[in-house]
Structure formats: C-alpha cells, structure tokens
Design a protein around this nucleic acid. Structure first.
Lengths: 210, 210
DNA sequence: GGCCTAATGTAACAAATGTTACGCAAAGAA
DNA sequence: TTCTTTGCGTAACATTTGTTACATTAGGCC
C-alpha cells in the first residue's frame, strides 16, 4: 500500500516527509458508494488520496443536493483542511465515486509541516488553489450553462474521473447531482442519444462522441 | 493612514509584523466604482483591505457576469493569493464597491511570512477558509434559490456591505450582478415594493423590512 | 420652457425548466 | 413461472425566467 504513497507523492515530497507520513498516517480503504464525510461531521484527519476518486457535494436545508467537484489521487480536500483548522463542522459530503485508498493525517501534523517542509507548504497552497478553481468552475456551470449543457459537462467530467466511457449511472442519480428532476434529465439524455452522442442502457450510459 | 492598519490588523498581528507591513506595503486609495483587478491581469501584490468594500465578480466567454462575493476591511482576497502563488492570470474582477483604502504587499513577502509569523500563517489560512465559505454560499444561491429569493439576498447583502438601507443602485446593475435581465429584476422589485419590503426610487432602493 | 437621455413600468409573448401522471420493460425475488 | 421493484419513456400541463416592444417619467442641460 505504501508504494502508492511513493508513486503519487514521491515526486512532491522529500523522503523525510514521506517517512513521517508513513509513520503517522492511517491507511484507509473505502468501497465505491461509501460515505466518507457527511454534513456536520467533525473532522480530525486530513485525507491524502492514493487511489480512486471522491465526489464532493453540498446540500441545502430542504435536502436538495448539488455536486461540487471530484477529487482524484494526488489530491486532498481543501474543505477538509478548512474544517480542521477552523474546528468547524463539515459543510460538505464526501462520497467514494470509485474504490478508494487514502491515508489519514492527524490535523496537528498538517499544521506543523507547513512550517517544517516547504514542499508540504506548497502542496497545501496548491490544494487550496485547485479547490477554489473548481468551485469557480461549479459556479460558472450554474450561472452560465443551461440544463442540456450542464448534463453534457457532467457526462464529460464523469468519463474523465472514472476513466471509462461506460458510465454506471441512473437518470435519477444525475438529477440529484445537478439538482434537477429525473424527467428533465431523461428528456435531455434522450435528445443526446438521438444526436448520436450517447447510447442509453438500463443503469448505464455509453458516451460516444464528445 | 497607518492607524487604519493598527486598527484593523493590530489585534491579529504582532508588532514586528505590523512594522514589516508598514515598511514594505504600499498604501493605495481607490474611488468607488474603480476597477482594481480585471480578468487576465497578472498579480504581483497581495492587497490588505483597510477601509471600504470590494466586489468580486466572474465573467464567462460571452461577457455575461456574475457577482461572487464582497470583501471587507480586515480581509484579503484569496483568489489573489491563488494568482500570486501560481503565477497565473486572474480569474476574477475586483471593483471598489465603496471608497477603498488598501495596502499592497509584495508576493515574495507573503510567502516568506507564512514561515516566519504564526499569526500571518493563521491569517492566510483563515482567508482561504472565508473565501471557500463565501464561494459555497454563492453556489447555494445559484443552485437552490429562485430569482426573487436571490434578489432579496442581494439586497440584504448589499445593505450589510454599504452599512446603509438606502442603496444607490439601478435595476440594470442588479441584473448584471445576478446575470439576469433588467425587466425580470424590475418585475421582482415591484412585487417586493407592493409587499412593503422596499421602496423604489430613481437610482435608489430603500430597504424597509428585511 | 423644451429637448435629450437614462431609468423605470408593464404587457404580451417565448423559451426553459419543473411537475404530474401513467405505461412499459428489465431484473431480481419468491 | 409470477410478482415486485426499479428504471426509463413520454405526454400534458404548470411555473419560472427571459425577451421584445413600447410608454412614461425624472433629471440634466440648453
């Protein structure tokens, strides 16, 4: 398992830091679909993703949900860092999109290493930056795209994340992620199929064109 | 002018750091409506806000705009830090919402101080956290609120920022900020007026109720 | 006063999105 | 096999939001 650490972070961190991570971090294995963090959770560890992808989503008071972004191997979740540092409750939900391996770092260390290791400091700032950028992208989608465009973007993003043009997803799930309704999504998907861009199957969408 | 620095940041930073800021920072005065940063700008300074409020907005390829959030005195702009560190171009536009005083810190120092001063480090992380939180709020508004609700929230936020229930704003300006159209906004505002929540004047809206 | 421009009011219509309702088919359970 | 659940297709309709078009009004300027 520790080879994954070397593989994904070895080029980023000096050996000394890698060793510290090995010594203090707890490896965790999560199945696809499992929930890692939920709204209101208190967070005491910062996760480094070794394998797989995690979906980060947000919910309002009525239980309506919206997908924010995905994080992949080599990433960490800035929203988690936020919670760690501020001792606040989680504002987001993290769900394993695929099978996931991660290593959990105690909060205190995260803070300490910012001073001790330049590479760690850069990594932390880079993570914040990536997350801000992805939040901006989410805002762009919501503000400037119409539903059909959002669905297309959703499918594209998902193909990237799972690295497969066959997506195991139902229309209802897409509706949840985009905070829309199943009927609306079905209607749009059917149109995309007629345009030859996708192929619709039960519990599955084959992305052909884009 | 330097009293403003003491006033807004004195309780945050140790004297030594305040002195460094005084020595290295350049004071800048900006009139309401002036543009501080535009899309694609390269950023070499990190601004600390001493007085007033700045509006941060985003634009898509068609020139459509959307308000992201405001920053106030005692804040800095995390998106700017992002740009500084990553040597990237600005993804956002910053416009003075009121008369503004700020102090510009050279990028290199910003990085250096993270190691040297614990209080600075905390400040930087806190800023990232605030910004992420405000981005989340922006996403919530876009994803979960309808237009009338967004308009109400807009008016509420604006009252907070300018600290006055009389807002000098036209319907068209609101339409730009919410990426909607003037007619739609006028319609909603008229309804709010009939409900006794606001009073409409030329170039001005008096917020009564909420 | 008369003229001009920007801001606002409003109706009528169009497009996008959401809702309700119901039928059908696939997959798994009994 | 039959029964049941779940996912999907589709029509009809409702609501929200956007568009076009035009009238009115306030304020600045001559």
């Amino acid at each position: 398992m520790e080879d994954l650490l070397e593989l994904n972070y070895g080029y980023l961190f000096e050996e000394e830091l890698i060793n510290e991570i090995k010594a203090l971090g707890a490896i965790k294995h999560v199945e696809a679909g499992d929930r890692l963090i939920d709204f209101g959770d208190h967070i005491k560890f910062m996760p480094l993703l070794l394998k797989g992808a995690i979906k980060i989503s947000r919910q309002d008071d009525n239980g309506d949900e919206i997908l924010l972004y995905f994080i992949e191997k080599g990433d960490t979740c800035a929203m988690t860092m936020t919670c760690c540092l501020g001792q606040k409750k989680s504002e987001i939900r993290a769900t394993a999109e695929t099978e996931v391996e991660l290593i959990m770092i105690p909060v205190e260390k995260m803070n300490e290493w910012v001073v001790t290791y330049k590479t760690w400091r850069n990594f932390v700032f880079e993570s914040y930056n990536s997350r801000l950028t992805e939040m901006l992208e989410a805002i762009d989608s919501l503000a400037f795209l119409n539903m059909p465009e959002r669905v297309e973007k959703y499918l594209r993003d998902k193909v990237m994340i799972v690295k497969d043009t066959e997506l195991n997803v139902t229309h209802q799930e897409i509706a949840y992620d985009l905070n829309s309704s199943r009927v609306v999504i079905s209607r749009i998907l059917k149109k995309l199929e007629k345009e030859g861009k996708i192929e619709l199957l039960r519990n599955k969408i084959k992305v052909l064109d884009f």
